[in-house]
Design a protein around this nucleic acid. Structure first.
Lengths: 134, 134
DNA sequence: CTACTTGCAAAAAATTTGCTGCTAT
DNA sequence: ATAGCAGCAAATTTTTTGCAAGTAG
């Protein structure tokens, strides 16, 4: 899958980007596919996978690589982290950051050239807390 | 897959735990399977999956949920983080931790009851650095 | 034009499961 | 004895790919 030299903004690609940007959940490829078919009834799952891949290679979206089997995608391309509910798997954005020297500290410790990090917090979301007290 | 009331330490389970504990890499189920067949030629891949699941449910090992499609497992059950090589996917342990108040800070921000976090650093490992300069 | 992309269908990769006989406790 | 497990093979789930026809630039 060598990335092509010139990327085109096709209808499909545009709609994928568009929809993903207005969602604040973090859908899987399959969830995107089901949603997209409302606007593009003939889109194929392969196209969805290919475009999510391309868009995240370009940095227009993020591939979220945290817990769980399925990949998830995030229309918010800025640096941020996630909280996951241990009970219902809900995933939300978190805008905190660890101290800026952490990457360098890890570089020294491990001899890797560390360039970024991801963080996932795990806990119980507000609605599952309520459910637990019911 | 309801966890049984009484777990048994079968030969297979013991060997899986044993081998995983002495590795300092973080194998996938399939990598474990190939390794295990040296000691248990008849073990099946299904058994490997089932046991890695059970052992991590018990807290005897960790299921590492970081980047990538495949699940990975870690014989070291203590709290620690990981560095991944962006080029060769090598995964190593990191013993740094973020400040202890981070979980609480995120709890306040998100209204989740945050109880833990995972962190993954991404970079280039020593051998890939050498390869890049060759 | 023509390199890139699509839809479709088939393949591959990763994981889970049903079942029958074996085994740890 | 018996609940729990193993091995095997088949099924599911998730992701990737080959190909022929369509399209953005």
């Amino acid at each position: 899958m060598d990335t092509p030299v010139n990327l085109r903004m096709t209808k499909q690609r545009q709609v994928i980007l568009d929809e993903l940007r207005k969602m604040h959940t973090h859908p899987t490829a399959d969830e995107m596919y089901r949603l997209l078919r409302k606007r593009l009834p003939k889109i194929s799952l392969g196209t969805v996978y290919r475009n999510l891949e391309v868009l995240s290679d370009c940095g227009l979206i993020q591939k979220i690589e945290v817990a769980g089997t399925q990949k998830r995608f995030d229309g918010n391309a800025s640096h941020h982290h996630h909280v996951r509910c241990a009970q219902c798997s809900r995933l939300e954005d978190v805008y905190v950051d660890v101290d800026a020297e952490m990457d360098q500290k890890v570089s020294r410790l491990t001899e890797f050239d560390v360039s970024m990090h991801r963080m996932e917090f795990v806990g119980v979301c507000p609605s599952c807390k309520v459910a637990a007290n019911a």
